[in-house]
């Protein structure tokens, strides 16, 4: 992992201090922790009463009610859980595009989310695609301590998932950070990520060159992942056609997100700080 990426993690950590992860109610489950869960538990927060049933812990019988009504009632307390955040990073080469800040922004964003999750009393896991999905080393530590974060895979997210899918925690919050620029069926990818998740957020991270095609002239285009090349004379018509294709592709992902109950937002890598509002807009982050 190069120094620039580590610097990005550090910067993301600093940014993340200002935010907390917004945990949806459905995601209030997990290991015992410090955050109230949906179910009854052993916290001190009263939740409800119910009739005593054999086997219930006698310590939770409300003897006052028994004295008044001669009926045994059990006091229920909220459980305390630790929600979980799974950050799924697209580790393909397109995320490390020459001349763009996509890799740096991806690291910065992952670090930000990790810190924001910590601010929200959430556990976290950072998954990186490559030859299958692997957790980033030391991902439970502060982001600057992460290791192995690199974007050099020639495989797409779908292909990595086929090889070794990530072990995502049930009822966790999942965030996919990718440029989404690979051919495939978005619905299939999203269903795989959405399965068992409390919420799925898709952050499309594009470089400025992805959003705005290159200048006019003769250009030899090189696919960052496959190495395939093509030579084009780019003029205004071609540029327009490219933007139309991009818009169609984004619309296809947006439709797939709606279909799968996920939320999509697009962030320009070079304008990350100004794009954080978009993350607030989709209720992924909230000010700490």
């Amino acid at each position: 992992m190069n120094e620039e990426l580590r610097q990005a993690l550090h910067q993301g950590e600093q940014l993340g201090l200002r935010y907390a992860l917004q945990i949806p109610q459905v995601a209030a489950s997990g290991l015992v922790g410090s955050r109230l869960g949906r179910r009854a538990g052993s916290s001190i927060d009263f939740q409800d009463y119910r009739e005593y049933q054999p086997g219930d812990d006698l310590r939770f019988i409300d003897w006052g009610i028994y004295a008044r009504t001669d009926r045994l009632s059990i006091k229920l307390f909220r459980e305390e859980v630790t929600p979980h955040l799974d950050i799924v990073l697209d580790g393909s080469r397109s995320m490390n595009l020459e001349g763009s800040s996509k890799a740096r922004a991806a690291g910065e964003l992952a670090a930000l989310l990790a810190v924001a999750a910590a601010n929200a009393q959430c556990s976290r896991a950072v998954w990186l695609s490559g030859e299958g999905f692997n957790r980033v080393a030391n991902d439970t530590h502060p982001p600057p301590s992460w290791n192995g974060l690199q974007f050099e895979s020639a495989r797409t997210l779908d292909q990595s998932c086929e090889i070794l899918p990530p072990k995502l925690r049930r009822l966790g919050v999942r965030v996919l950070i990718s440029d989404l620029l690979w051919p495939g069926n978005p619905v299939q990818t999203l269903r795989r990520l959405r399965e068992g998740a409390a919420a799925l957020f898709v952050v499309q991270l594009l470089g400025r060159d992805d959003a705005n095609p290159p200048d006019h002239g003769s250009i030899r285009l090189v696919d960052s992942e496959t190495g395939e090349q093509t030579e084009l004379f780019v003029d205004s018509t071609v540029k327009k056609q490219y933007l139309e294709n991009l818009a169609q592709w984004q619309q296809a992902w947006d439709d797939a997100c709606r279909q799968c109950g996920a939320r999509l937002t697009t962030v320009i890598a070079e304008d990350l700080e100004s794009s954080l509002r978009e993350l607030e807009a989709i209720e992924l982050l909230s000010p700490a």
Binding site: L97, S218, L221, D235, Q241, L246
Partner: peptide, 21 residues
Amino acid sequence: RRRQVSSLMLWRFHVQSREGG
């Protein structure tokens, strides 16, 4: 000029302009 792009999938057009594309 060599330029690396994220993917060529968006550069494949069905309709080409007279000069470009």
